[in-house]
Amino acid sequence: MALSYKARRRWSLVILLVGLPAYIVAAVTVVNWFDRPPIAVEFLIYVVLGIVWALPFKFVFRGVGQADPDAKDQ
């Protein structure tokens, strides 16, 4: 079932305002459980985690910044 444009916009806001901060807290907590790695390794971990969070939500964010394709021209 495909989401409508309005539903994708709403879900993208929820993901960015609630999900992303929760993911950041979880990622920092998990990295802190281990002894502090060298700064380059820690940077690489955060870069990878920063990319990985968006992959499952790619379909939600696709086209959200564009004009509503279902809106009638005025």
Results as ranks from 00 to 15, higher is better:
P38L: 09
L13Q: 08
A2P: 15
V14D: 10
P69T: 12
R8V: 06
M1N: 11
D70L: 12
L44S: 13
K58M: 14
E42C: 02
G65H: 06
V14A: 12
D68R: 00
E42V: 08
R10C: 06
S12V: 01
V47D: 05
P56Q: 02
R8S: 07
A40E: 09
W33M: 11
A2M: 10
L20Y: 15
W11V: 02
L44I: 11
S12A: 15
V48N: 03
A27L: 14
R36C: 04
A27R: 00
V30D: 10
F61V: 07
L55C: 07
F59L: 12
V60H: 01
V28E: 06
F34D: 02
A22K: 01
A22D: 02
V18Y: 03
L3I: 03
K58N: 05
A7Y: 02
V14G: 08
F57M: 04
K72L: 13
L44M: 10
E42W: 02
K72P: 06
I51W: 13
I45V: 15
R8Q: 09
V18R: 00
E42D: 12
L17E: 04
Y23V: 10
D35E: 11
Q66E: 14
R36D: 13
S4M: 07
Q66F: 14
K58F: 12
I24K: 01
V41P: 03
A71L: 09
V52K: 02
A26E: 04
R10N: 11
R62G: 00
S4L: 08
F43P: 00
F43W: 09
G19I: 11
L20M: 09
S12K: 00
A54R: 03
L13F: 06
D73Y: 07
I39V: 11
L49A: 11
Y5T: 01
L13D: 12
A67K: 09
R9A: 08
V47A: 15
V47W: 09
F57L: 04
R8I: 06
Q74L: 08
L49G: 06
F43C: 07
P37A: 13
V41D: 05
L16C: 10
V25S: 07
P69M: 07
V48D: 04
V30W: 13
I51F: 15
V60A: 09
F34G: 00
M1R: 05
Y5N: 00
S4T: 15
Y46K: 02
V52N: 01
V41R: 07
R10E: 15
F34I: 08
A2L: 13
K72S: 12
P21C: 08
I45E: 04
F43I: 11
I24E: 08
L20W: 11
L13T: 06
G65Q: 06
V60Y: 03
W53C: 10
D68N: 12
W53L: 14
R9Y: 00
I15T: 08
D35Y: 04
K58R: 11
D68H: 01
V30F: 14
I51R: 04
R8L: 05
G63W: 10
S4H: 03
V41I: 15
A67C: 05
Y23N: 01
I24Y: 11
D35H: 04
L3T: 02
L17R: 01
I39Y: 05
A2W: 04
A67M: 08
V25K: 04
L16H: 05
A40V: 11
Y46N: 03
E42F: 01
D70Q: 12
F34S: 04
F61A: 02
A22S: 08
Q74R: 09
D68G: 01
A26S: 12
I51Q: 06
V48L: 15
V18M: 07
F61S: 01
A71Y: 07
